[in-house]
C-alpha cells in the first residue's frame, strides 16, 4: 500500500516542485535584472494556454517522442530517493523512493537518457534543420558534460562502495556528506550543473535567437506543454540527484526540498548573469576544469581505498 502511495506521490512532488521552480527561475532572473517579473504561477498559465492551442503534428513519432521523454523523466523520479531515512530521528519518515531496488544509480543514468533521446526523435521527425542543429548541439553538450559527470558518479560510487542511491544517501547520513568526503567531485558537478539543466551559459541547445529554439522549433500546443512539464521534471531530477549525491539527501521531504532550493538558487544566479557560449567552448570548458577536478578526486578516492 505504501508502495502505491509512493509511486503516485513522488512524480506528483516532482511535477509540483518542478513547475514551481520554473516560475521561481523567471522571477529570480527578473529580480536580478531589476525587473518586477511575472507571477510565480506563470508557467502554469503558459501550460494551460498551450494545452488549449491546436497545433500541428509531423507524424506519430513527432508526438511519441515527447511522450517518451516525459514518461522517461517521470520514471527517473521514482528511482531517486526524495528524503527520508531508515535511522531513527525526529521528524524523519521512511525513504521516499518507490523503485529503490531496481538497479540503482546505473539505471538512473540510463533512464535520464530517455528525455534527450525522446526529444531528439521528435525533433528529427519535425523535418526542420533548426531542430536537427539543436539536436546535434544537445548530443555534443551531453557528451561534453557526461565525461566529468561519469567521473563524479564513479568517484561517489567508489567512495561509498555501492551502486544503490538509497545506500549512498544512508552512508552520507551516518558519516559525512559527499561534499566533504569527495569535495572536488562536488565542485565539478556544480560546474556542469548548468549544462545538465540546459540553462545559461549552456543554453545553446534551445538558443531562440540563433536556431529558433532548436529542437522545439516545430513544437507548439499540447506537445510544447508536455515539453515544458518535462523540462520542469528534468530540473527536479538533476537537482535532486545533486542533493542525494553530495548533500546527504534529507531526513525528511522538507529538509530535502530546502536543500534543493538552495542548490537551485545558486544555479539560477549563474543563469541570470552569464551570456551564452558557443558549443565548441562548452565542450572545451567541460573537458577542462570539471573533468580535471573530477579526475583528481577519483584518483584520490581510488588510491585511498
Amino acid at each position: 500500500m505504501t508502495g502505491i502511495i509512493q509511486i503516485v506521490l513522488s512524480p506528483l512532488i516532482a511535477f509540483v516542485v518542478g513547475v514551481l521552480f520554473l516560475g521561481l527561475a523567471r522571477k529570480i532572473i527578473a529580480r536580478v535584472h531589476r525587473r518586477y517579473g511575472p507571477p510565480i504561477y506563470q508557467p502554469v498559465i503558459d501550460v494551460v494556454r498551450m494545452m488549449s492551442q491546436r497545433s500541428i503534428s509531423h507524424g506519430a513519432l513527432f508526438e511519441l517522442g515527447v511522450v517518451l521523454a516525459l514518461a522517461g523523466s517521470l520514471v527517473t523520479v521514482m528511482l531517486i530517493p526524495l528524503g527520508g531515512t531508515e535511522a531513527f530521528q525526529p521528524f524523519a519518515h521512511s525513504v521516499l523512493c518507490p523503485l529503490s531496488s531496481s538497479g540503482g544509480l546505473l539505471v538512473v543514468m540510463y533512464l535520464m537518457l530517455f528525455g534527450p533521446l525522446g526529444l531528439a526523435l521528435g525533433a528529427g521527425a519535425s523535418a526542420n534543420p533548426n531542430a536537427s542543429i539543436g539536436v546535434s548541439r544537445k548530443m555534443l553538450l551531453a557528451l561534453a558534460y557526461e565525461v566529468p559527470f561519469l567521473l563524479v558518479i564513479l568517484a561517489v560510487m567508489s567512495q561509498y562502495g555501492s551502486i544503490s542511491l538509497t545506500e549512498i544517501v544512508a552512508r552520507q547520513q551516518q558519516a559525512s556528506w559527499g561534499v566533504l568526503s569527495v569535495p572536488l567531485s562536488a565542485v565539478a558537478a556544480f560546474l556542469i550543473l548548468p549544462a545538465m539543466l540546459g540553462i545559461r551559459p549552456f543554453d545553446l541547445v534551445t538558443a531562440p535567437q540563433e536556431i529558433a529554439s532548436g529542437p522545439l522549433a516545430e513544437y507548439g500546443g499540447t506537445c510544447l506543454a508536455l515539453i515544458t512539464v518535462q523540462k520542469a521534471i528534468h530540473l527536479f531530477v538533476v537537482i535532486a540527484l545533486f542533493v542525494d549525491l553530495f548533500l546527504g539527501g534529507g531526513v525528511n521531504l522538507a529538509t530535502f526540498l530546502v536543500k534543493m532550493l538552495a542548490v537551485f538558487l545558486a544555479v539560477e544566479m549563474i543563469n541570470a548573469v552569464l551570456p551564452r557560449v558557443k558549443i565548441e567552448d562548452a565542450i572545451k570548458f567541460c573537458w577542462k576544469w570539471p573533468t580535471a577536478l573530477a579526475f583528481v578526486q577519483m584518483t584520490i578516492t581510488v588510491l585511498s581505498k
Binding site: S57, H58, V67, L70, A71, G72, A127, E218, T222
Partner: peptide, 27 residues
C-alpha cells in the same frame, strides 16, 4: 515505464489534438 507512458498519453488527450501537416509546412 508503461504506466508512465499511459499517463502521459492521457495527459496529451486532455489538450487540443494537433492536426497533421505535410513536411513542406515547416518553419
Amino acid at each position: 515505464i508503461v504506466i508512465a507512458f499511459a499517463v502521459v498519453l492521457l495527459l496529451m488527450r486532455l489538450g487540443a489534438k494537433p492536426r497533421r501537416v505535410p513536411q513542406e509546412d515547416s518553419y
